[in-house]
Computed example of a mutant assay.
Amino acid sequence: MPDLDLLTLDETAERARISMRTLLKLVAEGRGPVITKLGARTFVRADHFAQWIEGNAQTSRHRSSIELTNPLTEQPHG
């Protein structure tokens, strides 16, 4: 059996910098990372987490989809 790096749901939410509530909502909607159940415990494999992050990453190359604004003036930077 391969040596798997398993993350708890708390660790997954922390690494993704989202709340547990948001993580559970994403998983329930099928938009979160793949979960693995071992008995009563729930985990996310580290490789599945990495794939999920890569699949949802946005890059700054798509500037039109990411509007940067100055919070003091609400005017676009640039």
Rank of each mutant, 00 (worst) to 15 (best):
L6H: 02
Q75D: 09
A28R: 08
L68Q: 05
E29S: 07
R31P: 04
D5I: 15
Q75E: 13
P33T: 01
E54S: 14
S65R: 15
A57N: 02
G55K: 02
Q75G: 04
R15A: 10
F43S: 03
E14L: 02
D47V: 12
H62A: 14
A57R: 11
A40V: 12
R31Y: 07
V27H: 00
T42W: 03
A46Y: 11
V27Y: 00
K37I: 07
A46N: 11
M20L: 02
N70Q: 10
N56C: 14
A40T: 12
L26V: 03
R41G: 07
T36E: 07
V27N: 00
E74M: 05
G39S: 07
I66T: 05
S65G: 11
R21I: 00
V34H: 13
H62P: 01
K37G: 06
L72P: 03
G39P: 08
L23M: 05
R45D: 13
L23N: 01
K25W: 04
E14P: 01
R17N: 10
T12E: 01
Q75Y: 07
P76D: 05
M1V: 14
A28P: 02
L7I: 04
E11Y: 08
T12M: 05
R41M: 12
V44G: 05
S60D: 07
E74V: 03
H62R: 12
S19I: 01
R17V: 04
H77T: 04
R63V: 09
A57H: 09
T22C: 00
N70T: 08
L72V: 10
T42G: 08
R63P: 01
P76S: 11
E29Q: 15
E29N: 14
L72I: 13
Q75V: 09
T73L: 05
I53K: 07
T36D: 01
R15P: 01
L4P: 05
T42C: 12
G55I: 08
F49E: 00
S60F: 12
D10M: 01
H77R: 07
E67G: 03
V27F: 00
S64G: 06
Q51N: 13
L38K: 10
V44T: 09
L4W: 10
K25A: 07
N56M: 09
R61D: 15
E14T: 03
L38C: 10
M20H: 01
R45V: 13
E67L: 11
A16I: 06
A28C: 04
P71A: 06
D3Q: 10
S19Y: 04
G55D: 12
P2W: 04
H62W: 08
F49Y: 15
A16E: 04
H48D: 15
L9H: 02
K37W: 08
I35L: 08
A16S: 15
A28S: 12
L9E: 02
P2D: 11
T73K: 03
T59K: 09
P71L: 02
N70K: 08
L38W: 11
P71F: 00
E67S: 06
Q58T: 12
E11I: 07
D3H: 05
R17Y: 11
P2R: 14
Q75K: 13
S64T: 08
S60N: 08
P76I: 04
K37S: 13
G32A: 06
Q58V: 15
E29K: 09
T8G: 12
A57Q: 10
K25N: 10
I18S: 01
G30Q: 13
L38M: 14
K25H: 12
L24Q: 00
